[in-house]
């Protein structure tokens, strides 16, 4: 029963981490790259307008970082809840 309990907690912790990562995923692409693109384009970073940069460059970099961050945190969670492999 306690193992059952711990697995439920593990799943909840996973869902929380997922929700956090997916909200960043949403913000950089849909919010910065699409919905707020005109407003952000008023800001220039180097030769880029910020909204355009998020849409064609920035969001992709953030996606890469997000996956590695998620993988790293999940490895820690796996060990913490003793559900890791080998």
């Amino acid at each position: 029963m306690s193992e059952q309990r711990s697995r439920q907690d593990y799943w909840k912790a996973n869902l929380r981490l997922m929700a956090f990562c997916l909200s960043i995923w949403f913000v950089v692409s849909y919010l910065f790259g699409i919905i707020l693109v005109d407003q952000l384009n008023a800001i220039s970073v180097g030769g880029y307008r910020l909204g355009f940069w998020f849409a064609q460059q920035g969001s992709i970099y953030v996606f890469v970082v997000l996956i590695f961050f998620y993988a790293y945190r999940m490895n820690k969670l796996d060990r913490q809840f003793d559900v890791h492999e080998d």
Binding site: L22, W25, I60, I67
Partner: peptide, 26 residues
């Protein structure tokens, strides 16, 4: 496609990369 669509081609750039976040997490 990007050369002729400009900003609007961002859908392909974000769409075809953002899917990997879903794949990795979900």
């Amino acid at each position: 496609l990007i050369a002729f669509l400009g900003y609007d081609a961002s859908v392909y750039l974000m769409g075809w990369t953002g899917g990997y976040v879903l794949l990795a997490l979900l």
